[in-house]
């Protein structure tokens, strides 16, 4: 039994214009200690996936499918049972360290909260533990910092506080939703390395969400590439980066700044914009941006094909896409 098994997850958000299908038919499975990356452009449903796993969708969201954590279906759990799981067996780090901490409480108090809630520690025990946690996530001078308010810390330090918070009850799964997007480039690597080390030490499973293929390539064992709410390519990280198949993944890769490209190197972008989730096109959602699109793409949804063991792609023209990779599909 996998640690986490998500099958056919659908998330839809009711809006004034009708339901927006933010996630469609998502399948993920995660073993203990495994790391999974979810990558895709902004708006493709990464955060909604994460929030659905935590049971924290906005009020207008509904979920279908199954999310089973060690065999228990989370979608069937009561709110009270979910409260015992959140922060305890599953924890999450958010994108904006600036706004994700309560401005009117000290960071110490905020880290202590889950310790007292889930582990039933006394105030003084929780305080000691908090200082230990802050030390572990690399906050200098924790016995002073513990009394600081979020606005007195830098962005990087605040994200470290968020990590300490997530780590506090040694969860089985850590979900990090773009943990470094809001941070300075120099700090990004430090934070990712910290997460990586802690995950290793604790033996936690990690779901790392990013719009940056590079971040995913360096930090995860498995990848799911999302587009328009659905996974278009998934598999072991090495295999995917060794054998980019889906035209969208290739596009993301082409859009990545590369080492040695120099100042004059041109960044390619994928033309067009992400699909409208309320009126999804029939067929493949990537059709109107895809350099290989044919009439068939616009009318029939592609099925999943396996390129190599574990490497799955949802596309009508996989062979063409793989063959065209040499010259680059995007010019």
């Amino acid at each position: 039994m996998a640690l986490l098994d998500v099958e056919n997850l659908d998330v839809s958000l009711s809006t004034a214009m009708g339901p927006a299908r933010a996630v469609r038919g998502l399948n993920i499975s995660l073993e203990k200690g495994e790391t999974l990356g979810i990558v895709g452009e902004s708006g493709c449903g990464k955060s909604m996936t994460a929030l659905a796993l935590m049971g924290l969708l906005p009020d207008n969201g509904t979920t279908e499918g199954t999310i089973s954590l060690q065999g228990e279906d989370l979608l069937l759990k009561s709110e009270k049972e979910m409260c015992k799981i959140r922060g305890n067996r599953m924890a999450m780090i958010f994108q904006e360290p600036m706004t994700s901490l309560n401005p009117v409480h000290t960071v110490g108090r905020q880290i202590m909260e889950p310790l007292r809630l889930h582990r039933g520690l006394s105030k003084s025990e929780a305080f000691k533990e908090t200082i230990g946690l802050m030390e572990r996530v690399g906050i200098p001078n924790p016995s002073e910092r513990v009394h600081n308010y979020p606005h007195q810390l830098s962005g990087g330090q605040r994200q470290r506080v968020m990590i300490a918070l997530a780590l506090s009850c040694s969860p089985d799964i850590l979900i990090a939703d773009e943990p470094t997007t809001a941070l300075d480039v120099t700090i990004q690597d430090q934070i990712l390395e910290l997460i990586q080390n802690l995950v290793d030490e604790e033996g936690m499973a990690l779901i790392l969400i990013s719009h940056d293929l590079g971040v995913i390539a360096e930090n995860t064992e498995k990848v799911a590439v999302m587009y328009g709410g659905a996974v278009v390519e998934s598999g072991p990280t090495d295999q995917i980066f060794g054998n980019l198949a889906h035209p969208y993944t290739q596009g993301l890769f082409a859009a990545m700044p590369k080492l040695g490209m120099g100042r004059n190197g041109r960044l390619t972008t994928i033309p067009g914009t992400v699909p409208d989730l309320i009126n999804l096109p029939a067929g493949c959602t990537f059709t109107d941006r895809c350099p290989l699109a044919t009439d068939e793409c616009g009318t029939t949804a592609p099925s999943i094909s396996t390129v190599e063991a574990g490497h799955k792609v949802t596309c009508h023209h996989i062979d063409q896409a793989i063959n065209g990779r040499g010259e680059g599909l995007y010019k």
């Binding site: 924290l56 924890a91 958010f94 994700s100 809630l117």
Partner: peptide, 11 residues
């Protein structure tokens, strides 16, 4: 956002 954080803690 910090409300979501609080909920993610299990409150």
């Amino acid at each position: 956002d910090f409300v979501r954080t609080a909920r993610a803690k299990g409150l």
